[in-house]
């Protein structure tokens, strides 16, 4: 079953600026992989027996919370040292166009 892929749309959703050639390459590779992956649709038996949301923690953990306690934050200078651009304690990016 060939799979339809709007690769430009997917690349845009994933914020990947790819060339047309790159996109075409990925589109055909994804087609092959997805054709194989589509085998998940062959799962036999009652689909209700294995609801999607059934896959919770393998040890059945629930309610893993923390108490409302303040812990020390990181040193700003150390954090901003990794930033490609910063100014006056802020991270700086080119202007955002979309909201």
């Amino acid at each position: 079953m060939p799979v339809e892929i709007d690769i430009a749309h997917v690349a845009k959703l994933a914020r990947l600026d790819l060339t047309p050639d790159e996109m075409e390459g990925y589109r055909s590779q994804l087609g092959v992989i997805l054709e194989h992956a589509a085998k998940v649709q062959s799962l036999e038996g009652d689909p209700e027996a294995h609801p999607e949301g059934d896959v919770t923690h393998p040890l059945g953990l629930v309610n893993a919370f923390r108490d409302d306690e303040v812990r020390p934050s990181l040193d700003r200078a150390e954090v901003l040292a990794s930033a490609p651009e910063s100014r006056d304690g802020y991270y700086v990016v080119p202007p955002a166009l979309e909201i």
């Binding site: 914020r15 600026d17 954090v79 930033a83 490609p84 991270y91 990016v93 080119p94 166009l97």
Partner: peptide
């Protein structure tokens, strides 16, 4: 490309990120 790691040029945040 905002808080760490490789950043490319871009006129807008969106372009820079992609």
């Amino acid at each position: 490309g905002i808080r760490y790691g490789h950043r490319a040029d871009g006129d807008t945040t969106e372009e820079m990120m992609s």
